[in-house]
Amino acid sequence: MAAGGDHGSPDSYRSPLASRYASPEMCFVFSDRYKFRTWRQLWLWLAEAEQTLGLPITDEQIQEMKSNLENIDFKMAAEEEKRLRHDVMAHVHTFGHCCPKAAGIIHLGATSCYVGDNTDLIILRNALDLLLPKLARVISRLADFAKERASLPTLGFTHFQPAQLTTVGKRCCLWIQDLCMDLQNLKRVRDDLRFRGVKGTTGTQASFLQLFEGDDHKVEQLDKMVTEKAGFKRAFIITGQTYTRKVDIEVLSVLASLGASVHKICTDIRLLANLKEMEEPFEKQQIGSSAMPYKRNPMRSERCCSLARHLMTLVMDPLQTASVQWFERTLDDSANRRICLAEAFLTADTILNTLQNISEGLVVYPKVIERRIRQELPFMATENIIMAMVKAGGSRQDCHEKIRVLSQQAASVVKQEGGDNDLIERIQVDAYFSPIHSQLDHLLDPSSFTGRASQQVQRFLEEEVYPLLKPYESVMKVKAELCL
């Protein structure tokens, strides 16, 4: 049975990233139509530049190519590739079939990587351009969430054990800070992308030097003109047959890092959902379990974690691919890159769409948070109580021993009897502590235990987050809708 299948058929496997999760716009960027249309555009740009620099290419040939950029006979191309065992030459023939007058000058002087690699770089750039505003929107939604809850005390956790208090907004800023680093890295790697350009079979530009009869300047002009037509500021000066596969490492490393950030955020949300302090959106008709109707599973956060793990592992592909590119190139890269580049971007696209949807509907339960604080705060307040007693004339050592005994009794009630923490009640009825009984409410005010959390939130948002989001103001209103 021949390899390949009808990918629109229910009898043929289709990647869930495309069929179930990723956005239509990201799927289109990695589609065959987008790819092969870009090949034709690159052939047109090459012909236009070659004509401008004096090669015998007519206006009629150029116009014929322009008129057929979208006229792609995919069936013919597939048949040609089956016959020739070469995808680029299959599309040269297919393009030439609908451009008979231009057929002889299509791909003039070029090698397969002229269309293959340059198209990949265009796709990487455009895919990054799709991700950047999506990530900015996630940051914006979380920034709104953090600002609104900047002063809401909550129990902090280290080692997932109760620690000092923080605020809900401050905790959210930990998430935002990681995503801001990801946004900066995505922008950097996007701006650092260079075009492969017009380089020939081993990167020496020998074929173009021959076409222009040894004119170095025209060869350099050709490279520059096509690079500018493709919208790049610069091209690699040095290439082998391909652009260095280190570029793929750079791009997928940034995406993998984004995956790590999203995994951490969504894990926190899942843990908070278990504590009943916070939940992701839950639709009115949504079913959490087929057997347990009360369940409210954090399905979206779980999906993000599941896909983020996949995204983090994909960076190993370009690392290994770059390491086995012998001399000017081997074909070890080809099949692998067809999979890992598309999957990385479709996965990143999915987790950003999902995280935006989550961040637009996060639900906080202040009463649950308050109750958990009441359970733990008495123990945390013991040092403040000791200091207040010393100020009232008591002995630190005597007070410490009193607190120690009462704390152990209260802990026994919590752990052995399943009761509430009654340390404060014990202190309130103990005559030894009568000098500070009137101060206990103040000493137990949760806001006095959150330090500068709310001020940190305000400063972080104003100095770091809002300036970073400013270039994306025009796209901030787009909502994230999930079908599944």
Rank of each mutant, 00 (worst) to 15 (best):
V251D: 02
M380H: 03
C180S: 12
K233C: 11
F28A: 09
L209I: 13
V88T: 10
F327Q: 11
K82Q: 13
D11V: 09
G104L: 12
H437T: 10
K75N: 11
L346S: 11
L440D: 04
Y13Q: 10
L271F: 06
I373H: 05
V413M: 13
E148S: 12
A110Y: 00
L311K: 02
G419L: 11
F195R: 02
F28W: 07
D268F: 04
E343G: 13
S23L: 06
R196K: 11
F95W: 13
G418V: 03
F433H: 06
R194W: 08
S67E: 14
K276I: 05
K66M: 10
A77N: 13
A206F: 03
E464G: 07
N357V: 09
S257G: 10
H217N: 13
G4P: 11
L258V: 11
L255S: 06
L331W: 02
E302F: 08
S15K: 06
Q184D: 14
L193M: 15
L209Q: 14
L186G: 10
R270P: 06
V478I: 10
H263A: 11
S257T: 09
L341T: 15
L132Q: 14
Q320D: 01
K415N: 05
L211E: 04
T154A: 11
L341G: 14
V219W: 02
N274I: 04
T119Q: 06
D420M: 06
R329H: 07
C99Q: 03
R141G: 15
I386H: 08
E60Y: 12
M389T: 02
L17G: 08
T354E: 04
K246F: 03
H437R: 10
L258Q: 08
Y472G: 10
C340K: 03
S301F: 02
D349C: 08
A344F: 02
L352M: 13
K229I: 02
R245E: 01
T313L: 10
Y114L: 03
A410K: 08
G104P: 14
Q51K: 09
Q164H: 05
D223N: 10
H107A: 00
D317A: 09
M299R: 01
D445T: 15
I249P: 03
A410Q: 02
T204F: 00
L314Q: 13
L482V: 13
S301P: 05
T354Y: 06
E48V: 06
S261K: 01
V138S: 14
G393H: 07
Q286I: 03
T201N: 04
A77F: 15
Q205T: 07
L186A: 12
K233A: 12
R188E: 06
P24R: 13
A392W: 02
D422S: 07
F30N: 06
I238K: 01
C27T: 15
E70F: 15
D178G: 05
K284W: 14
T202D: 07
G361A: 15
R196P: 01
R371A: 04
Q397F: 02
L211S: 08
H86A: 01
F212E: 07
A381E: 09
N336Q: 08
E328W: 01
I176D: 05
L165T: 00
H159G: 02
F212L: 12
E148Q: 14
E228P: 04
D87N: 02
Y432W: 09
E343K: 10
V390Y: 07
I122Y: 13
G96F: 07
L44V: 13
D216T: 12
L346E: 09
K199E: 00
E250W: 08
K224Q: 08
G104R: 13
L130W: 02
R296S: 08
P281T: 11
V414P: 06
R459D: 10
A410I: 02
A150L: 06
D248N: 04
G393P: 04
R190T: 13
P446L: 04
V198E: 01
E302Q: 03
C304I: 14
E383L: 03
N71K: 12
L46R: 01
C305M: 05
K199R: 05
D120L: 08
V198H: 04
M65D: 00
Y21S: 00
I123D: 01
H7L: 14
P298L: 03
E376S: 02
G259S: 10
Y466Q: 14
I386P: 01
S261G: 13
T204P: 00
F95R: 01
K470R: 14
K264V: 04
S407I: 01
F282S: 13
Q41D: 11
R149S: 10
R14K: 15
I139H: 02
A110C: 08
Y294G: 03
E60K: 12
P366N: 10
F145K: 05
P435D: 08
I373E: 01
L352A: 11
G156E: 02
I424S: 13
E370K: 08
E463C: 08
L193V: 10
R40C: 03
L440R: 04
K402Q: 08
G203R: 00
P435M: 06
L135N: 06
R459G: 13
N421K: 05
E64P: 00
W45D: 13
Q408W: 07
E481I: 09
G54M: 09
L341Y: 13
F345C: 12
S23E: 10
P446N: 04
R190S: 11
H217T: 14
A127I: 02
V324R: 03
F160R: 04
D333H: 05
A49H: 02
Q61D: 11
L124T: 15
M89H: 00
E425C: 09
R141Q: 06
K276H: 06
L341E: 11
K147N: 14
R234D: 10
K101T: 11
C180Y: 06
G393Y: 07
I105R: 12
H97I: 15
D349H: 07
E148A: 11
E343A: 09
F345M: 11
E70V: 11
G104N: 11
V315W: 09
T202I: 08
G231Y: 08
G214W: 12
E481Q: 15
D117K: 00
I72G: 05
I427F: 12
T38L: 08
R234G: 12
L53G: 05
I386W: 03
R300D: 05
E343V: 05
R83H: 13
S31M: 03
G109Y: 01
F195C: 13
F208P: 00
C172G: 11
